[in-house]
Amino acid sequence: MEQAVQYLFVGLVLIGGGMAALSRHVLYNIIGLGISLFGLAGLFLQLGSPFVAAMQLLIYLGGITVAIVFAMMLSIAMTLDPPPRTPVKTGFAAIAALTFGVGLHGLISTATFATAPPAPADAWAVAHIGSALLERYNLVFETLSVVLLLAIIGAILIARPDRTGKVA
């Protein structure tokens, strides 16, 4: 039963990824990204962390996907016809991605990874994440908040028209 649900999520990730990468119309790219992110949230849940799964849904699906959709609506990218095919560029991109994929797969299959016994259930509690963020990884947490502040300020500055109405 758990296997079936797991295969469902893997299927969602692959279908979503395929739509996101291989479709030529930008609307289907976005829908594919949404499906893929949802499947990934399910996989995170299977991998033991419901908190990270909830955060993935909250931030990626509820925030980032909505922002991309918004930007797309404001730039009317979806009403444009798909751009003409560029077989040379697509071909080289496919070769590059395939080479990378096959090469890294060779690397992974010949490597041996350390295995550890599964952690007890109370090691996955949310309280541990909270205390880790504020004690061990405090610097990273504060840096992330500074980065987000800079991103907000930068985004406002870049996209704002100046007082004469022209874009800065």
Partner: peptide, 25 residues
């Protein structure tokens, strides 16, 4: 009973936005 039900609730409520967009577009 998860120990993060509140976060799950807020996360799924955020999915409503995508549905509205899909309906509108």
């Amino acid at each position: 009973d998860f120990d993060i039900t509140l976060v799950l609730l807020l996360a799924f409520s955020g999915l409503n936005v995508i549905a509205i967009f899909a309906a509108g577009w």
